[in-house]
């Protein structure tokens, strides 16, 4: 093991889709990003390699509403590795209409420090 490792990412900054190469230094304390066409890609490669995060949007069951599902999202991005777990954790949740947009549906989901919030009003049917 040399400790040097190379990882590949597709830049999402624009349709050019530069293929980024991220190389960790031996100590694993820093990275070098190559293959970018502009600064956006350079920053994206670093972020995506060291701390990738996503906003999770899903829906929960709602009773007595205009629709059967209430859309929700995380109030901020969560670590990419937790996306599936976050979605699974809210799957059994059910609420009753009416619900106002912005209402916290699950607080501090899986200890991530972010809440699952309603992204629309759900009026009674």
């Amino acid at each position: 093991m040399t400790g040097e490792r190379i990882f590949h990412y597709l830049c999402i900054g624009c349709p050019l889709g530069c293929r980024l190469e991220v190389e960790e230094n031996a100590a694993g304390t820093d990275v070098e990003v190559r293959g970018w066409g502009c600064k956006t890609g350079k920053a994206y490669g670093r972020q995506e390699h060291t701390d990738p995060r996503r906003v999770v949007a899903t829906s929960v069951r709602v009773s007595g509403g205009r629709w059967a599902r209430l859309p929700v999202k995380t109030s901020g991005p969560v670590p990419k590795a937790m996306v599936r777990d976050v979605a699974r954790a809210v799957r059994p949740v059910a609420v009753a209409a009416p619900v106002a947009a912005g209402t916290v549906i699950v607080a501090d989901v899986l200890g991530t420090g972010v809440d699952m919030i309603a992204t629309r009003d759900m009026e009674r049917a």
Binding site: Y9, L10, I12, G13, P15, G17, R54, K80, V83
Partner: peptide
């Protein structure tokens, strides 16, 4: 589709 969706909807999973 957008590269963003290729990465975040396909690669991620």
């Amino acid at each position: 589709g957008l590269n963003r969706n290729i990465v975040q909807c396909l690669h991620d999973f």
